[in-house]
Amino acid sequence: MRRPRLALVPGEPAGVGPELAVAALRRESDADLVVFAEAATLARAARVLGTALTFHDSRADRAQLGDDGVRLVEVPNVAEAAFGSPDPRNARSVVLALRMAAEACMAGEYDGMVTGPVHKATINAGGIAYTGTTELLAAHAGCEVVMMLANPLMRVALATTHLPLRAVADALDGERLERTLRILHAALRGDFGIDDPLVAVLGLNPHAGEQGHLGREEIEVVAPVLERLRAEGMRLDGPLPADTAFLPRRLAATDAVLAMYHDQGLPVLKYSGFEQAVNLTLGLPYPRVAVDHGTALDLAGSGRADPSSMLAAVAACARIAGVRRTREQQR
């Protein structure tokens, strides 16, 4: 079986993304990587890491690359990137690289996409309304998606993502929750090869509402959705109190946890294994896996940025691409 071909987009050129991309390009993996970025930015990052790169066409075969060769789709920056100082003039280049990689994935030229961290404030300062790469890729593909973070110990998906806490309850309706669970269930089967996954669904309120005494969302929103989907054969545990749902004995039998909001589930996941955590966008026509951290502007150019999450993202994307291809061949 051929190796998965993955598009690698480093993200903000003034952050640690280029250094992480170079680390991934120089490390042996189970995928053929093609980086969508500016050659000069990557070369500068390589010098920081004490190495050098030779750039080749995106279609170059492995034999042509040699020890220091990388496949590149050139996406020039408008302004020269300075370590630690994002320039709004480069916002369009950052977004263009993501769009070009997404187009190529949609066209079947790549088996998946791996992305580094972007600087949302700088992109917005550059005149582009930008809420996140997950939202950008979902809009581009014209589909609904679910954000899920994963490390070797657990997978945590989110029913709502980047919302103020006071807005979460209003955003959590039965239709949205049902769509989220369907996308999550399909991804666990199609991307992770789990034929009959068990999902632990958290309640919104403390103690999962304490039978309505601490809130009625579990009774009026969450439980009815779980009952409908259980009738279709999904294995769903909940609604569960969040404070005990992550106990090891529970996680041992659980394939994923669905948290109702960002800070309900992600602090536990990041505490349990931040360096190996990755961010997945479920529901896209292609696998997309990102690092689970920001641009780390204070580390940019130092050569001290930990590439563990980037390496884990490449490995996860390659695995998912392989599972998808196997399933397609079995149809």
Score class of each variant (00 low, 15 high):
residue 21 A to V: 01
residue 22 V to L: 05
residue 22 V to C: 02
residue 23 A to G: 03
residue 25 L to T: 12
residue 27 R to F: 03
residue 27 R to S: 13
residue 27 R to K: 11
residue 28 E to T: 15
residue 28 E to P: 14
residue 28 E to N: 14
residue 28 E to L: 14
residue 29 S to Y: 11
residue 29 S to A: 13
residue 29 S to N: 13
residue 30 D to L: 13
residue 31 A to G: 08
residue 31 A to E: 08
residue 32 D to G: 05
residue 33 L to N: 00
residue 35 V to F: 02
residue 36 F to Y: 13
residue 37 A to H: 05
residue 37 A to N: 02
residue 37 A to G: 00
residue 37 A to Q: 00
residue 38 E to N: 11
residue 38 E to D: 15
residue 39 A to N: 00
residue 39 A to Y: 00
residue 39 A to S: 01
residue 39 A to P: 00
residue 40 A to R: 03
residue 41 T to D: 12
residue 41 T to F: 05
residue 41 T to G: 10
residue 42 L to N: 00
residue 42 L to I: 03
residue 42 L to C: 02
residue 43 A to F: 01
residue 43 A to P: 00
residue 44 R to V: 04
residue 44 R to C: 02
residue 45 A to G: 05
residue 46 A to H: 05
residue 46 A to N: 01
residue 46 A to S: 03
residue 46 A to R: 03
residue 47 R to A: 10
residue 47 R to P: 00
residue 48 V to I: 09
residue 48 V to S: 06
residue 48 V to C: 10
residue 49 L to D: 09
residue 49 L to M: 09
residue 49 L to Y: 07
residue 50 G to W: 00
residue 50 G to Y: 05
residue 52 A to H: 14
residue 53 L to I: 07
residue 53 L to W: 06
residue 54 T to G: 09
residue 55 F to G: 03
residue 55 F to D: 03
residue 56 H to K: 06
residue 56 H to I: 07
residue 58 S to W: 15
residue 58 S to V: 11
residue 58 S to I: 08
residue 58 S to E: 15
residue 58 S to G: 10
residue 58 S to Q: 15
residue 60 A to V: 12
residue 60 A to K: 13
residue 61 D to Y: 08
residue 61 D to L: 08
residue 62 R to I: 12
residue 63 A to H: 11
residue 63 A to M: 09
residue 63 A to F: 09
residue 64 Q to P: 00
residue 65 L to S: 03
residue 65 L to C: 06
residue 65 L to E: 02
residue 66 G to Y: 03
residue 66 G to I: 05
residue 66 G to F: 01
residue 67 D to C: 10
residue 67 D to E: 14
residue 68 D to W: 09
residue 68 D to A: 08
residue 68 D to V: 08
residue 68 D to N: 14
residue 68 D to K: 08
residue 70 V to H: 02
residue 70 V to Q: 01
residue 71 R to Q: 07
residue 72 L to I: 09
residue 72 L to W: 06
residue 73 V to E: 13
residue 73 V to L: 12
residue 73 V to H: 11
residue 74 E to I: 06
residue 75 V to W: 09
residue 77 N to G: 05
residue 77 N to W: 08
residue 78 V to S: 12
residue 79 A to W: 05
residue 79 A to P: 08
residue 80 E to M: 10
residue 81 A to C: 09
residue 81 A to Y: 07
residue 82 A to R: 15
residue 82 A to C: 14
residue 85 S to P: 02
residue 85 S to L: 14
residue 86 P to A: 10
residue 86 P to V: 09
residue 87 D to K: 02
residue 87 D to Q: 09
residue 87 D to G: 06
residue 87 D to V: 06
residue 88 P to V: 04
residue 89 R to W: 02
residue 89 R to Y: 01
residue 90 N to F: 03
residue 90 N to K: 04
residue 90 N to A: 01
residue 90 N to L: 02
residue 91 A to C: 07
residue 91 A to G: 02
residue 91 A to T: 04
residue 92 R to I: 07
residue 92 R to F: 07
residue 92 R to T: 09
residue 94 V to D: 01
residue 94 V to R: 00
